[in-house]
Design a protein around this nucleic acid. Structure first.
Lengths: 144, 144
DNA sequence: GCATGGTCAATGATATATCATATAGATGTA
DNA sequence: TACATCTATATGATATATCATTGACCATGC
């Protein structure tokens, strides 16, 4: 059935992409996982988010984000400063080492994306994005 | 950048779908995970596969499949019979309880898919599948 | 001020992802 | 037969996914 094949293809595409991407990051000698990189990127862009905010942005659970942040702190890619106005939170900041890592990953990610999207036109990408977003919306709508 | 947005959409679509699907299986009172269900389906269709074969079909690691099979055995959804001609392997068979579970999950999965694909035409699905397969191929090709 | 309810982060439990390795059995070859 | 090699499975280590819960803190109403 077509719909089953579709989710098969969806699963396959994302898994193969993640494997390829992680392999290339490893090969470049950069010690970071894709998920850690993603969270680090978000924090670099906006450094005043709660874990729940970050989780929403990267489609993860707050618990997953908490553990990823702990690893990033342990590895010195992030540092946490106390927030005077809210004792529950800390201000997360990307360290020098974190910046270096982000800069090192950047070209690898670009090359990964380019490789993954070989042969797809601008138009293809727009179509794909539109349809994928539609699926995401369908799955999020609470009705039924 | 468009390519980054694309992988964002891809990630989002698959994650939202998996969450919705698992939630609905849980709500139906069926005690199985999507990944276990997938492996169980494959074994029911072809019951003479090695773990590596199964892993390829579901885009997982052999180690992941080994652990999923162990859980399916522990929960009585699968049983393993010794294979006379190869002492390393066992013949995996879906039990009665496994069949019941598969039958119970079936309508939920169909309804999940229908919900996820609301508003997409046959044509959309074909396009989507074609483009996703292209990405998967791009990521698998060993060159570079 | 203070109780109540809400928010934030951390963590236990369980499942999965991945790599590397271990162990056992199978197979081919000298 | 003896050995090397290959294959199938299992498992340790680490990372992530998810739910549920806890504990700390905040904000509001009273």
């Amino acid at each position: 059935m077509l719909s089953s094949i579709l989710f098969y293809s969806l699963d396959k595409a994302i898994r193969q992409y993640r494997r390829m991407a992680q392999t290339n990051i490893d090969r470049a000698g950069i010690a970071i996982t894709i998920d850690q990189w993603l969270v680090l990127c978000v924090i670099q862009e906006i450094d005043d988010l709660t874990q729940t905010d970050i989780a929403e942005r990267v489609f993860k659970d707050q618990a997953s984000v908490a553990r990823i942040i702990r690893l990033l702190l342990e590895r010195g890619l992030l540092r946490a400063e106390p927030l005077p106005h809210d004792g529950r939170r800390t201000q997360l900041r990307v360290t020098e080492q974190g910046l270096h890592t982000l800069q090192a990953v950047e070209p690898v990610v670009l090359s990964n994306r380019a490789k993954a999207l070989q042969g797809l036109s601008e138009n293809d990408l727009n179509t794909l994005r539109f349809l994928l977003d539609q699926i995401a919306v369908n799955c999020t709508s609470s009705a039924e």
